[in-house]
């Protein structure tokens, strides 16, 4: 049933989209492609697991503690690890974030081991069932939650960046840090804020996907790769591009999985994306101009 697969694709894709958004906002403001992004989120999923399953705290409270921890990790990584080496080449910066990925994976293994830890869905009620002539679509409540939360985050982020003074100041820093300083904008503070936002979005993505993937050190590997792909497909600089990129990859992947081969769904979707990028190297909504880095 094609509609069922498209809906499932939109839901998977919405997760890719917020991962892409988190990557893009940090990249636009600080110029760093964060290859440790998914793994930073993974740590927050373990924090949730610890609070909720081990300590026995309430679900919502554990959720917010984990998100707050994610924003702290974002702040700490930018301020403590990346800012002191800001002026090194982009290639070295990539190596630093890849190193961080390995460190985070090792830390998680040391603290929590490599067992698959289960965390429950927040919503476990009956799925939403839509019937129409000749078809039926079933959407589990957790997936509705994912869609709702992701939509809310995207709208909040767009409003923040376009309507608030601070959001505009952040875009100014992304466009030209030196000129932004001349306006009286504290660029360092904006960089910290961008990583705090990025870190909390990464934690949120990990928490939303954790009931399906289970919590383990490499739980975010797939989401991180697909999030990167979504960002690249969208042009890596564009917020609408990331959203469209994420959703399209989700849909393509689900259709390929259903109609061609489940085993090949990642390979096949990535091949389609490579094909798109050969035709349009700047991405769907990227600009062909000189880019930051």
């Amino acid at each position: 049933m094609v509609f069922q697969q498209i809906i499932a694709g939109i839901i998977t894709g919405s997760l890719y989209a917020i991962v892409a958004l988190g990557l893009v906002i940090a990249y636009k403001v600080t110029g760093v492609m964060n290859f440790a992004y998914g793994y930073m989120g993974m740590i927050s999923a373990y924090i949730f697991f610890t609070c909720f399953s081990m300590v026995g705290m309430n679900y919502i409270l554990s959720f917010f503690i984990a998100i707050a921890f994610g924003s702290f990790v974002g702040y700490a990584v930018e301020r403590g690890l990346l800012r002191p080496v800001r002026n090194i080449s982009p290639a070295s910066m990539v190596i630093i974030t890849l190193g961080l990925l390995l460190v985070l994976e090792g830390v998680a293994l040391q603290i929590w081991g490599n067992n698959y830890q289960q965390i429950p869905n927040l919503l476990n009620g009956l799925p939403l069932i839509l019937r129409f002539n000749g078809g039926i679509i079933v959407i589990p409540q957790q997936n509705l939650l994912i869609l709702g939360v992701v939509t809310a985050v995207i709208i909040a982020l767009i409003l923040y960046l376009n309507l608030t003074f601070q959001g505009k100041a952040m875009r100014a820093v992304a466009q030209n840090e030196e000129i932004a300083k001349l306006m009286g904008i504290n660029s360092s503070l904006m960089m910290s804020i961008s990583w705090i936002i990025s870190g909390s979005i990464g934690a949120l993505a990990a928490l939303l996907v954790a009931p399906q993937t289970f919590v383990y050190p490499d739980m975010m590997l797939n989401l991180q790769i697909m999030g990167f792909t979504a960002a690249v497909l969208g042009g890596f600089e564009s917020i609408p591009g990331s959203i469209i990129g994420g959703i399209s990859i989700g849909i393509i992947e689900n259709l390929v999985g259903t109609y061609i081969s489940t085993n090949l769904k990642t390979t096949f979707s990535l091949a389609i994306i490579v094909a798109i990028l050969i035709v349009k190297p700047e991405g769907l909504l990227g600009s062909a101009k000189a880019r930051r880095v």
Partner: peptide, 26 residues
């Protein structure tokens, strides 16, 4: 004390009015 920089240094991807608003950041 404000510097109007060499080669203008406007923010190309922001609207004219948003550029002016950022001038009023302080």
């Amino acid at each position: 004390l404000t510097l109007c920089p060499e080669r203008r240094g406007i923010f190309p991807d922001l609207s004219v009015e948003d550029n002016l608003l950022l001038g009023a950041y302080t």
